[in-house]
Design a protein around this nucleic acid. Structure first.
Lengths: 141, 141
DNA sequence: GCAATTAATGTAATAACATTACATCACTTT
DNA sequence: AAAGTGATGTAATGTTATTACATTAATTGC
């Protein structure tokens, strides 16, 4: 019915926690939420995350040392370069792509003969909703 | 004689180590190189790094959890958005700017009413020198 | 000069993030 | 059933970063 590969139990648990969360979670935060499911050691989470990162079902935000579920449907893999905008106020993450940005990076790489393996694009700031609620409180809480 | 502000001893030591290094260094690697100068605790390095990051004299590479000296002269502050290309083979870092990329990010932010505070742009891969030495060895060692 | 203030420093302890090593279990293949 | 493979569980440890607190140095006002 789709190209989605089977997940192991731990992978499914981790992905479910991330999908439900409305903010990025650290590996240890994920672990805390899975104690009741029997998970006890960081490695159980990191192993699941490794697989989910490989397939693009999860992304790591280097600037936060935290993880988010990919916001795209995952019948197909996440293709192309992805950027993340992270709200410092409500912690929500906005995932987007821009082919022009992708093209400029590609052009730089060609010019410098640099072989690109992976790209990290993260912008940090305040999202529209948090800006319009001028007190800085989280508009959704 | 210039706009450069005075550095404290620890700040000067940390900046000097980073300037001499031809690869990014972790805070603890910096500390190790400054034992002889009397530094003993991570906090001494982190405090110096905090100041140097504020002024743009040093950059943090989130994807490596490591620090590099800014490659630009620092009579003036580092202006605009900066991207880093990091060679996985020789660890050298290439700092560059691209006004078109900057413009596209700005356009996205305007469209989404996102107030950008900071941006992380890092690409990881293999640099020209390492590619042409097909064995993968570091051509400068 | 000297108290009051502020900024930088030194030290220790601990928190937060991530990996290595190794034993075990489950499933498939033969 | 033996061999091979991939996932799991557990413990220990390694690495990165921060908190808390005491001290020292530089600055300001008197």
């Amino acid at each position: 019915m789709s190209g989605r590969r089977a997940l192991t139990r731990n992978q499914a648990l981790v992905l479910e926690v991330l999908t439900r969360a409305d903010e990025p979670l650290s590996a240890y935060a994920i672990l805390d939420r899975l104690r009741d499911e029997g998970l006890r050691a960081p490695l159980q989470v990191y192993r699941a995350l490794d697989k989910l990162l490989e397939t693009g079902e999860v992304h790591r935000l280097d600037s936060l040392k935290a993880f988010v579920a990919c916001s795209h449907p995952h019948d197909h893999p996440c293709t192309g370069l992805v950027a993340f905008a992270i709200c410092e106020s409500c912690a929500r993450v906005f995932e987007f792509s821009d082919s022009a940005i992708e093209a400029r990076f590609a052009a730089w790489a060609v010019e410098k003969a640099f072989l690109t393996k992976s790209t990290t694009l993260e912008i940090s700031g305040i999202c529209a909703a948090c800006r319009s609620s001028a007190d800085g409180s989280n508009p959704s809480d």
